[in-house]
């Protein structure tokens, strides 16, 4: 089970590091952060995905021992909830644009405190636990999107009000699609959700 030593994992890890650095280059950052939609719905999810992939590259026994040390899946899920909610605050978005420290915190916390712990927790979560994570995320996305559409004020000083409305619509659309997809996997996958919970800790994945 030593997946890190395989050339595949090494190559993946290398590629992952490159993608992370690529996202962090000033040019890519400027482009991603020039629009609210790209900032919230492309850059931030990609940072989370980097954390997800990074965690999955670790050998299973490492993942298990880290999970045991941090107290199991519940603290992991709670950390991910807090960190992801924080970056949904309009103020945090503005801060990431204007304060290099906040930008750094974003680049560190999204992979390390959202993507990484979610993968650790995922394999141990029951269907109900996974359902909680998904529905919580989907509803948060939908509510926030709706707020951005109907908000009478500009919530971010750094973004145009049109941009805010567009981002809101994208969020609502994304939440509907995610919900349909999640519902679909419940129906076609034998009723166990997108990823089948298992005991031996292999072959699980976070979509």
């Amino acid at each position: 089970m030593k997946r890190t030593s395989s050339p595949y994992a090494v190559r993946m890890g290398f590629g992952l590091g490159i993608s992370y650095l690529f996202l962090a280059t000033p040019m890519v950052r400027d482009w991603m952060e020039a629009s609210m939609s790209r900032h919230m719905l492309v850059q931030m999810p990609l940072l989370v995905v980097i954390g997800i992939v990074a965690c999955r590259l670790l050998p299973a026994h490492w993942q298990n021992s880290v999970l045991a040390r941090v107290g199991g899946s519940i603290p992991c899920v709670v950390v991910a909830l807090f960190a992801s909610s924080y970056w949904m605050l309009p103020r945090a978005l503005d801060a990431a644009l204007n304060d290099p420290l906040a930008e750094m915190a974003k680049f560190l916390s999204l992979p390390l405190l959202v993507g990484f712990p979610l993968v650790l927790a995922w394999r141990r979560l029951t269907l109900i636990g996974r359902g909680f994570v998904w529905t919580n995320f989907i509803s948060m996305l939908a509510v926030l999107g709706w707020l951005y559409i109907v908000a009478p004020v500009r919530v971010c000083n750094s973004y145009l009000v049109n941009d805010q409305e567009t981002a809101g619509w994208y969020m609502v659309i994304a939440s509907v699609l995610l919900f349909l997809w999640w519902l679909g996997t419940l129906l076609v996958g034998g009723g166990v959700g997108p990823d089948k919970p298992d005991r031996n800790g292999t072959g699980t994945k976070l979509a």
Partner: peptide, 26 residues
């Protein structure tokens, strides 16, 4: 650990929003 995380997380939110009053930069 969950309690610690909740405490710390709430603390960060408190600090980051001026005591839950300022959700926007404005």
């Amino acid at each position: 650990i969950t309690s610690l995380v909740v405490l710390l997380g709430t603390g960060v939110f408190w600090w980051g929003t001026d005591g839950f009053t300022a959700l926007t930069a404005e």
